[in-house]
Design a protein around this nucleic acid. Structure first.
Lengths: 134, 134
DNA sequence: GTTGCTTCTGCCATCATCTTGCAATAAGAA
DNA sequence: TTCTTATTGCAAGATGATGGCAGAAGCAAC
C-alpha cells in the first residue's frame, strides 16, 4: 500500500486508515478523528504525513475555501466542491476527462493526473440543504 | 460600476482599480500593489472589500495553493491554475461550459456562474518554466 | 537477535492568511 | 447642512501550515 521508499510508521498507517474510511478530509479533520479514536498524533505530523503522501502520489489534494482537503489517489481525480459547506464529491464524467485532454493539448498548462493536485474541480453549491455548514 | 447598494469609497475604488489593471491577485498582493502606489489601505479593509465585492458578484474567487485569488467577474469564470507558481489563467473552452451544464443537470451541485466562486478550475502545472515561483 | 544508520515523530516557535470587535470617519439621503 | 449608518482603521486573535531540533523508531545489514 505504501511501497515507495517511505517507512511504515504508526502515524502514517493511522492517517491512511482515516482517509480510507472517509475520504476528502482536511488536515484538522483528520487530526480530530485520530484523537477521537484515541490515537495521539501531533498536528504538525499529520501535515507532514499528508504532504509526504501527496508527494508520493498516494493521496491527492483538493482546495476548499481556504484549506486543503485530502483524498485517496486511487479514486477519481475530478471533484465538485460546495463553497458553502465544503463538501467534496467525486466527479465521474467523460467531459472532465475531455476537458483535461483539451487543456493538455492547449499547451500552456499540463494536467498530470498522477500529480498531487492535478485535476478538474467544479465549484458550486449543494442543491438543497448543505449537510454540515462546516 | 458598483451600483449594488454599497457605498463608493476610496478603498473600494482602489481595490477595483488594482484588480482591473491586473486580474487574479491575492489579497496580500493587492495590498502590496496599493502600498506601492502610495495608497494606504489596511489589509483587513482589503479583505473586507474583496469579500463584499465577491458577495456582490463583482469579483470572483479562485483558490490557489492555500490562498484565495480574486479576479473581475466580467471575465471568464473558468480557469487553469499552476500548482507550482500559482499562475491563474482564464480558460475559454466550450468543454468547460458543457461540464458545468452536465454538473447542473446532475442535480447534487449547482454551479451558479454569477456566484462568488462558481466555475471550473483545472489544476495542473505550467508547461516549461513557471513565470515566478510565487 | 543485535547493531547502526537514517528517517520520522513530537514539541516548540514562527509565519501567513484571514477574521472580529470597537471607536472614529465619511458616504449618501433627507 | 444635518443625520443616519455603512465603512474604515487599528489592534487582537483565530486558524492553517511550516521549519528547527532532539529523541525515538523503522529497516537493513550483520
Amino acid at each position: 500500500m505504501r511501497g515507495r521508499g517511505g517507512r511504515t510508521t504508526a502515524p502514517r498507517r493511522a492517517v491512511l486508515d482515516t482517509l480510507t474510511k472517509a475520504t476528502h478530509l482536511s488536515a484538522s479533520e483528520i487530526s480530530a478523528r485520530l484523537t477521537a479514536d484515541d490515537v495521539q498524533i501531533d498536528p504538525s505530523t499529520v501535515h507532514r504525513v499528508l504532504s509526504a503522501l501527496a508527494d508520493a502520489g498516494v493521496v491527492h489534494t483538493v482546495p476548499v475555501n481556504g484549506t486543503t482537503t485530502y483524498g485517496m489517489a486511487d479514486q477519481a481525480h475530478h471533484h465538485t466542491v460546495c463553497n458553502q459547506c465544503g463538501k467534496v464529491r467525486q466527479l465521474h464524467h467523460d467531459l472532465a476527462e475531455a476537458l483535461v485532454r483539451a487543456v493538455n493539448a492547449d499547451g500552456t498548462v499540463s494536467v498530470d493526473e498522477d500529480g498531487r493536485a492535478g485535476g478538474v474541480v467544479v465549484y458550486g453549491r449543494c442543491t438543497g440543504a448543505c449537510p454540515t455548514p462546516a
